[in-house]
Amino acid sequence: MTFLIQQTLIYAVPLMIVALAGVFAERSGIINLALEGIMIFGAFAGVLFVNLTQQAGVFAGAKEAGNWVALQGFELLAMLVAALVGALFSLLLSFASVNLKADQTIGGTALNLLAPALVLFLIRVIANQNTLQMAEGDAASWFMIRKSTLGIDRSTDLGFLGETFINRVYLATYICILLFIVLSIILYKTRFGLRLRSCGENPQAADSLGINVYRMRYAGTTISGALAGMGGFVYALTTANCASTGDVAGFGFLALAVMIFGNWKPLNIAGAALLFGLFKCIAASYASIDINGDGAFLLAEIGISPHFYRMLPYIITLVVLAFTSRKSRAPKAEGVPYDKGQR
């Protein structure tokens, strides 16, 4: 059960934060199809930062001394870099869709094509292979929080909650959850959030009240890019051992599905992300899931093909959308370039 919860969280948290990234863009009126591409680029930037910093030996002393606080700071720094690069990359989308009034779907598709191509090109030049990894050690030994890192003896039993949420976890997971809560409050309870949302519903009305629609849309897309870039790095850190391969296995698109399934509302999105995380987790490790701890691997013993489990998240998405699509309500003005003179 501990394993199941931890694994589900690992998959659910990037989905959740990237889906929220989608919400910020769409609530401001820009369809951000490029989530996948921004994730790929953010993951690359974060991993490259980790790699270069390790090569420069900046945190080598901290690692030697087992100074885990410094190492967690290193992790946060990498997340920050990924977020910054993601935000910068998303400017390509905002420029095309806000200033040039280009088609947002195609602009997003272009970024989705560009990110893996550019990343793979650079990785090939930098690392001479198709993956960029950490310069030394692995993600677990550098960044994972364990009992031993906290100074607790390995054999102590922390109880169910402690074992699940303190042992063998990444700080990034909790930072993302915290950010998710804070940003949701900003979106709903502050003046900025209200203005942002108004630009996605009725930009003409917003403009007539003195809100700069262009600036709001830039803000929405940039926040979106930062979150997606960070989500990409968190995904690479927690599921891919901090390696960048120019691929995030379609997580950006799953996040879009989560966003639509969650009806563009943070609380629903959190629930949807957990559900998808669970199915992703089952698909990834169905053979080693021991639900009630009796040593029997139920899912593996049913004898269903692993291919079916891998297909499951996508089939569920379609089925769930089939049931919810009639009720879902997108921001009204999303995808429509804002034209001041339009009546």
């Binding site: 199809l33 779907t105 195609i106 989705n112 691929d247 379609g250 698109f253 959308l321």
Partner: peptide, 23 residues
């Protein structure tokens, strides 16, 4: 309208290649 659907893009969206023209 160009090659693009003229109708304002409906609620959901997503797009682009996950793996792109890589391998």
């Amino acid at each position: 309208a160009g090659p693009v659907p003229a109708e304002a893009a409906p609620p959901a969206e997503a797009g682009g290649p996950e793996t792109d023209g890589t391998e």
